[in-house]
Simulated scan of single mutants.
Amino acid sequence: MLHIPAVHTVFHKEMLFEAMALLYDIGTPLKSQFVSNGLNDTYSVETNTGKFILRIYKHLWRAESDIRFELDLLTYLKNCILPVSYPIQRRDGEWLTELDAPEGTRYAVLFSYADGAGKLNVDTSQAYGSAIAQLHHAMDFYEPKHERFALDAAHLLDEPLRAMLPFLQHRPNDVAFVQETAGRLKARLAEAANGAYDWGVCHGDLHGWNVFHSDDGSMTHFDFDCCGVGWRSYDLSVYLWDRVHGRSDSESFEDECWDAFLEAYTKERPLSEQDLAMIPVFVAVRQLWLIGLHTGGSTVWGSWQDDGYFDGKLKFLAAWVKAHNL
């Protein structure tokens, strides 16, 4: 019999929540689902006391201190009476549960359930922009208690490039384009690292689908897995990036949802002209970060990053940097 090491484990959901019910005061599990295999594994469970979300962090994806930073931030935001999906402590007061997986130790965290659904239109974009301004304002006063990586040039550009370039070796023209573009973008980030730009704790993944809207107009923010200290203009740029990436001409880069989002945000929390000017730069940075994320995670998600994938991703990047003279 061959023994082949595993790189990623999917746990038996019923047995998983039987174990969680012994650790957390959640009642008796009635129905559970394996929701998604994303950056981490997400499970949902319905018990006789309510609904909950369990996230199991992938092996080596986040260090323990990184996770504790996220959980402490969410607890702080909850205490600020902001609508977030927050972590739930175990009966013994601990936040993390270590799981002995074949690939190594993995961390599990139980979260409150986010009611509502994803909804993206001009009205929700406006409400979301205002809500993110409030989130950033609260984060201005947060004092981290745990170490975590920064959303800086190393994280947003250097690490993604190391992951993606081996996938492009048969496309030398694209290697040159990516390296030249990344070099120009990195120079812009270096200029913005002088302390004069809005820098603070960020959500890191504000693409508009990490928030659920309810019929009464309320919303719940969730998935702070990409949070960290960084440029606030990067945080905002992710919303614009989600609206335009995949488009390939400058005329299609205008977007009313983005306009509504930014107008609502700046009405609550004004941004300097230099911070606003960095947003198109960060859209391009985000596109490279995404490619690096996909290629770097190929051992778990599969190597579906083929020529068609790169054709589409790099076509948008080329059109965007040309339209904005980056």
Score class of each variant (00 low, 15 high):
N37K: 15
L60M: 14
A192W: 06
Y309D: 03
Y234E: 08
A190D: 12
F224M: 12
K322Q: 14
K13M: 12
Y57I: 05
A277N: 11
Q274M: 13
L60Y: 13
A190Q: 12
T28M: 12
Q126Y: 07
G183Y: 02
N194K: 10
E159G: 00
C202M: 09
L82W: 07
S65Q: 15
F222I: 05
G246P: 05
F69R: 13
S125G: 05
K186F: 00
D255L: 05
I4T: 05
Y107E: 00
V201H: 05
A6M: 10
A19K: 02
Q179W: 01
S298T: 06
H203N: 14
D235W: 03
D72K: 11
L135H: 03
C227E: 12
E273N: 09
A192I: 07
R106C: 07
A284M: 08
R162H: 12
V175S: 02
V45N: 10
A182R: 03
A196Y: 07
L293S: 08
Y142R: 00
W231N: 06
F212E: 10
T124C: 04
H146N: 15
I81W: 03
K313H: 03
E263Q: 12
D115R: 15
A138W: 12
E159Y: 11
L99T: 01
M20R: 01
F149Q: 13
L30R: 04
G129E: 05
M20T: 01
V281C: 12
S214F: 10
Q89D: 04
T9M: 06
K51F: 04
R91L: 11
F282Q: 09
Y265I: 04
S130I: 11
R269D: 08
N48A: 11
T181D: 02
R148F: 00
S250I: 06
K78R: 15
D198H: 08
K267F: 08
R106I: 00
S252V: 01
D205H: 13
L110C: 01
L77I: 11
I291M: 15
Q134P: 05
H8L: 10
L39I: 08
R91A: 08
R68D: 10
A163N: 15
G104V: 10
N210G: 01
A264K: 07
E191A: 15
K58M: 09
S125C: 06
N37S: 15
N194L: 11
H207T: 04
Y309R: 08
G116S: 13
H207K: 11
D242M: 10
M219I: 14
W304R: 10
D198G: 02
V84S: 06
H137Q: 15
W241E: 03
G50R: 04
G129Y: 07
W95F: 07
V238E: 09
H136Q: 10
G308V: 02
D259C: 03
I56C: 03
V178Q: 04
I132L: 13
E191T: 14
G50L: 08
P102M: 03
V122Y: 09
I81H: 14
D72T: 09
K315P: 06
L165A: 07
S218A: 12
L271M: 14
T295W: 02
V84I: 07
S237E: 09
L135T: 07
D259M: 07
G246I: 02
K78G: 04
P270A: 05
F149N: 13
E147N: 08
G104W: 06
L168M: 11
R243Y: 00
D225T: 10
A150T: 13
L293C: 09
R247F: 04
T181K: 02
R90K: 13
R243P: 00
T299Q: 14
F69P: 14
K58T: 13
